[in-house]
Amino acid sequence: MSAAVLDALGQHRIVPVVVVDGAEQGERLADALIAGGLPVAEITLRTAGGLDAIRAVAATRPDVVVGAGTVTTADQVDDVVAAGARYIVSPGLSEAVVRRAQEHGIPILPGIASPTEIMRALDLGVDVVKLFPASVVGGPGAIKAFSAPFPGLRFVPTGGVSSANLPDYLALKPVLAVGGSWMVDKALVDAGDWAEITRRSAEAVALVKNQES
């Protein structure tokens, strides 16, 4: 299961990082992403209703590859797996979080920002990591530097990624996918502007296709 989910992320190349509050917002957001040709969502636990949103999308939108973001404790791993999350993303590297995810057999992308953290991740059997916050720790240049001593590692850079610099990340072979929130801006979610989310998602998909052509 783990490999299939990571392959799906690699196929879409973009992981929308979503902040929604509750089941209804989660479902509407998922519909907007589907309409834009980007059926992937990392729903963060930054709001009280984040878990409800994951549960709703997993149950009612099975075509969406839904994951849980901002997972920082082992108990949260249990919660999001029970809710139906298919992968987990953490802002940092916690051995307890990684171990619990592995016990569940679910992919975990821990956040790293240094060679030391990469080595700890590799020691835990992780070979796909979240570079976070990507723009602060060096962006594409950091990925190039890290990939030299760690050639088998794949990255999902998140933080400061935009439509403007997306091609710079996607051009790098170690980049499995990028995490971004510009197409699912929280202001758009709060305003219920699902059409604009769909438009931005379709635009992002087009950028990926242009990069690969």
Rank of each mutant, 00 (worst) to 15 (best):
V205Q: 06
G84D: 07
R120V: 12
K144C: 08
F150D: 12
L33N: 04
V71G: 01
P91T: 12
D123A: 15
D185A: 14
A195F: 05
H104D: 07
R154K: 14
F155I: 03
E117F: 07
W182F: 11
A74D: 08
Y87H: 11
L6W: 06
Y87E: 03
G179S: 04
R154Q: 15
G152Y: 06
S162Q: 11
V15Y: 02
L153A: 10
R28E: 12
K130Q: 08
V161T: 09
G160N: 07
A23R: 11
G67R: 04
E27I: 15
A142M: 09
D75S: 08
V15I: 15
V129W: 01
A121H: 03
G37W: 09
P157I: 10
I88T: 04
S90G: 11
E24R: 14
D123V: 06
P149M: 11
V66C: 00
I43M: 08
P115L: 10
G50I: 01
L207D: 04
P167Q: 10
A41L: 10
A32W: 02
P140R: 12
V126W: 03
A48F: 05
Q11F: 15
P151N: 09
A191I: 06
R13W: 13
L207F: 05
H12F: 15
Y169W: 12
G138K: 09
V128T: 12
L29W: 01
L29V: 03
I143E: 06
G67P: 02
L33E: 01
Q211A: 14
S135G: 09
H12W: 15
K173A: 15
T116N: 06
E27A: 14
V97S: 11
D185W: 01
R199F: 09
S147W: 11
L9K: 03
V205S: 04
L109N: 06
D127F: 03
I112Q: 03
A35C: 07
L93M: 13
D52T: 08
A113R: 00
A195Y: 01
P149K: 06
K209M: 08
I143V: 15
A145N: 10
I108C: 05
Q76R: 04
A164M: 09
M183K: 03
G141F: 10
R55P: 02
L172H: 08
P91Q: 13
D190I: 03
I54W: 00
P115S: 05
D193A: 14
L153K: 05
L188R: 07
E117K: 08
P149Y: 10
A83D: 03
E103A: 15
E203P: 02
S90R: 04
S147Q: 14
Q102T: 13
F150R: 09
L131F: 14
S181C: 10
V175D: 07
A30I: 10
A121R: 04
D21L: 11
T70V: 09
G26E: 08
I14S: 03
L29A: 01
V57R: 01
E24I: 13
A121Q: 03
V89Q: 08
F155A: 11
G92N: 14
Q25E: 15
R55C: 02
L124S: 02
R200E: 04
A8P: 01
D63P: 00
P151C: 07
A30L: 10
R46P: 05
G26L: 12
D78W: 11
P16V: 13
G152L: 11
